[in-house]
Amino acid sequence: MSEGCVRTELKLTAQPSAAMGSAQEPEDLDSQAEMVADTVLEVGERLFQVSRRALSLHSRYFEAMFFGGTRESSEHHIVIRGIDAAPFQALLEFTHTAQVLIGQENVTSLLETADFFQFDKVKLLCEKFLERELHVSNCLGLMAYSQHFAFIELHASAMNVALTHWGDVMSQEEFKALPKETLMQFLKSDDLFVPREDVVFDSIMMWIMEDPETRERDFLDLVAEVRVAFLSLSFLDILVKRSKRPGQADTFSRLIRRLDSCPPPSWQNVTLCPYTSRSYDTLYVLGGKRDKEQQELFLFQPKTGTWQACSPLQRRNLTQYAVAAVGNLQSCNSSDASNWD
């Protein structure tokens, strides 16, 4: 797990569902396991006395092994290779208590073991734990991890963290190793959250420059997802000047010249470009009691629903308050500004 995350250990309980039936109640399983422990499983050089029935109620793997007509269905000592004893013991205890202790130290081994033995409830609890641990520093890794285990909710949550913290995510080492298809998925999204569309272009260049020999051919496909209508004029001016410099042989200049000579359709016809800006929508609110020497100033970002305190405005508020939305300042008269704090 990421070093930036707080170390966490949680005891999680599986909630009974209609599909599980009353046989899944912890008390019933405990009594069953004690009465009908009928098989020895050798896992990681340890021996475990187990109940076939209790294991089969939780695991499709053991249901097929014990009641599917396999060779093991008639054996009473079964060796399972390639599995560590500790996570298997945690799964075995889960069949008695419907609880499992999950922490950063064991979540990976527990999840992989639960996946191998098809303990679906434990897999779900591991997924919930990983959702709690989501952070900018690990969201790309957890996206890939969630795809391997078909964790739809974890994948969506991890992707949302990446989309809403793109400026931080693009500086991560895992960003440089993203497959083109995953990067394209981000670039196409309306939910990509950036201060300026310029950042989207920069992220493409950063990804290509990590391995220019193999990634240059993807440049025009990727840059077609940049919403050119929302690039800043100063940024476009830089691109134009780079494209006109004679004798520049570096990768960046070469790609800009290629863009200039063969722009994607969305760069040639802005009507083909999405109309939605992905840059920050911001709301500035200032106010305070009448005749104060400075006024409080706050920044609100509607996309994330967060408020941020800014440096106070060094002037008195006599008769007015003001709101600035996305850079457009509006001033409104207030008949009683002293009551608005």
Rank of each mutant, 00 (worst) to 15 (best):
L318F: 14
Q330T: 11
F186E: 00
M184I: 04
A98Y: 06
F66Q: 09
S157Y: 02
V50C: 11
R196Y: 03
M205S: 01
I83H: 01
V226N: 00
L329Y: 10
F201H: 01
I152G: 00
M170Y: 01
N339R: 12
D168L: 14
T13M: 06
G247Q: 07
D84Q: 07
F235S: 03
D191W: 05
A90M: 06
R290D: 13
A162E: 05
D191S: 07
L231C: 13
F298E: 11
A337I: 12
S334M: 14
F129S: 02
D221A: 06
S261N: 11
I208F: 01
W307C: 07
C126R: 07
L231D: 03
C262T: 05
L130F: 13
K292A: 13
R227Q: 06
R53S: 12
M20D: 12
N333L: 12
D28Y: 13
T164K: 11
E293N: 13
Q320A: 08
E225M: 08
N106I: 06
Y280C: 07
S261F: 05
Q147C: 11
L55Q: 02
S232H: 07
P263W: 02
K121I: 06
D120S: 14
L134D: 06
R7C: 12
P263L: 03
F298L: 09
I256T: 02
L272N: 08
I83F: 01
L192F: 02
L163T: 01
L318P: 10
S22C: 10
S157C: 15
Q185C: 12
S277Q: 14
N269F: 14
F300M: 08
S331W: 06
I238Q: 08
Q314E: 15
F94Q: 06
A224E: 05
R258C: 04
A98D: 13
A229R: 15
L92D: 04
S137M: 15
S2G: 09
K289Y: 08
A224S: 14
S331M: 10
H155P: 04
V136H: 04
S59A: 06
R132M: 12
N106Y: 07
Q99E: 15
N106A: 08
M35L: 15
E181D: 11
S334V: 11
K244I: 11
A325S: 04
L299I: 08
L259G: 04
P265S: 02
Q49R: 15
S189R: 02
E27H: 13
S334G: 13
F149V: 09
V169Y: 00
A33G: 10
L47I: 07
V199K: 02
L299H: 10
S56N: 09
R254W: 02
L233M: 09
V326L: 09
V223N: 00
G103T: 05
Q49K: 14
V6I: 13
A158K: 00
P274S: 02
L239F: 01
W307P: 08
Q314N: 15
G82Q: 12
V43N: 01
K128D: 14
A18H: 11
G103V: 05
L313F: 11
E3I: 11
D202A: 00
I78Y: 01
R257A: 01
A98K: 09
M65E: 05
N339Q: 13
Q118C: 12
F67Y: 15
T95R: 04
T251Y: 00
E27F: 14
D336Q: 13
E153N: 06
L125F: 08
V228P: 01
R215T: 08
M206V: 08
